[in-house]
């Protein structure tokens, strides 16, 4: 069963603490925003025997959505900042394909993931080029959701911050279209979470580099003979 010689692995610190923190805060926010957002769009049919003034559940759902939205947005800004000061794996250049090598890797990843061929070259230890691009696109969706969300919120707030986004309402032709698109992109997160979680498990399974646990402890593992930083 086991080979004669144990294969030496190199332990690599890939995800620094701010990246991991961002990831999990973001994950909690996305889930909370998705669930509360869906409820705001389709409130549950609950009836009470008590008077209306004794209930406030829908108000709370909205409150959680709004507070989480602020956390989500500022957390995202911190991640963008870290894209400029963090380590090589966190750099913003990982997210936008500038180099030919990134495109080559994308094709490689597509072969491995979709056609399920054998891994030929080596897939980056950090974000692979395809994942990076998908994350970049999802950052654009984050931004879109934040802008449209704050724009909708601006009419019920006296605070200056949401008002910064009020310009999007006339641009998109009124609150209704803004709300519609804000709702439509909620589904992006649903699909993203399914595919993202699955692919983490998949890559962990076929690569054996500790992809899943890396977002907790920060370390990934690479065969010493294959390690290139």
């Amino acid at each position: 069963m086991a080979s004669a010689q144990p294969i030496p692995y190199q332990r690599v610190y890939v995800w620094e603490f701010p990246v991991r923190l961002y990831h999990w805060v973001n994950a909690v926010c996305v889930v909370a925003l998705g669930v509360t957002g869906y409820l705001i769009g389709n409130p549950l049919a609950i009836s009470y025997s008590s008077e209306a003034y004794q209930q406030y559940w829908f108000g709370w759902v909205r409150f959680i959505h709004f507070v989480t939205a602020f956390v989500f947005f500022f957390n995202f800004l911190v991640r963008i900042y870290w894209g400029f000061v963090g380590n090589d794996f966190a750099r913003w250049t990982n997210f936008i394909p500038f180099k030919r090598a990134q495109y080559r890797e994308m094709v490689e990843v597509l072969k491995v993931d979709v056609l399920q061929t054998k891994i030929r070259g080596l897939i980056s230890l950090g974000h692979n080029a395809l994942a990076g691009l998908i994350y970049f696109l999802s950052f654009l969706v984050f931004l879109f959701q934040a802008i449209t969300g704050f724009a909708l919120y601006s009419s019920m707030s006296d605070s200056f911050f949401p008002r910064l986004f009020a310009w999007i309402v006339p641009l998109m032709g009124g609150d209704n279209p803004v709300r519609q698109w804000h709702h439509v992109f909620m589904w992006f997160f649903v699909v993203f979470v399914i595919v993202h979680v699955y692919l983490v498990f998949y890559h962990d399974y076929v690569e054996g580099r500790g992809t899943t646990s890396s977002m907790v402890g920060g370390y990934k593992f690479e065969r010493e003979d294959e390690y290139k930083s």
Partner: peptide, 16 residues
């Protein structure tokens, strides 16, 4: 918004 001055608004917040 019509919603902000609606007399049925309390039912909205109560989720009714």
């Amino acid at each position: 918004r019509v919603h902000d001055t609606c007399y049925r608004r309390p039912y909205y917040d109560a989720g009714l």
